[in-house]
């Protein structure tokens, strides 16, 4: 699916160069020059393609890595008794510490 998304991005980049409407002065809906209307469509299409990209081609391991990293930092600090204020901030902002000392990110379902 990742490849499909990147093909769509390439199509979008190619479609951006609309030489076919270059000298066309027709008005869409009676007020929008067609050259401008087409590029408004390109903007909306871009949002749709990027929606597909973040849905299908999102690097999910980033969130897993972050959770693992914070978890390991937290465990180390707890075990050595050196939980610093900076780490405390990390806990407050990014993680919720469960009763069994495991952690979850704020965006992970409870």
């Amino acid at each position: 699916m990742k490849h499909f998304v990147w093909i769509l991005v390439a199509v979008l980049l190619l479609a951006h160069h609309d030489f076919w409407f270059w000298n066309d002065d027709r008005l869409v809906f009676g007020f929008l020059p067609i050259g401008l209307f087409y590029h408004v469509f390109i903007s909306i299409a871009a949002a749709c393609v990027w929606f597909l990209a973040v849905t299908m081609a999102w690097p999910r391991e980033l969130d897993e890595e972050a959770t693992q990293r914070f978890s390991s930092q937290l465990t180390t600090r707890h075990s050595t008794g050196t939980l610093r204020s900076d780490d405390q901030t990390l806990v407050e902002e990014d993680l919720t510490v469960r009763g069994d000392n495991t952690v979850r990110t704020d965006e992970e379902p409870s």
Binding site: A53, V54, P59, L62, D63, A66, T105
Partner: peptide, 19 residues
């Protein structure tokens, strides 16, 4: 950004906001 997922909304909505 708070997390990687935070980027999803800007990635999708930026073209619409520009428009």
């Amino acid at each position: 950004a708070k997390s990687a997922k935070t980027f999803k909304l800007p990635v999708v909505c930026h073209p619409i906001f520009i428009m």
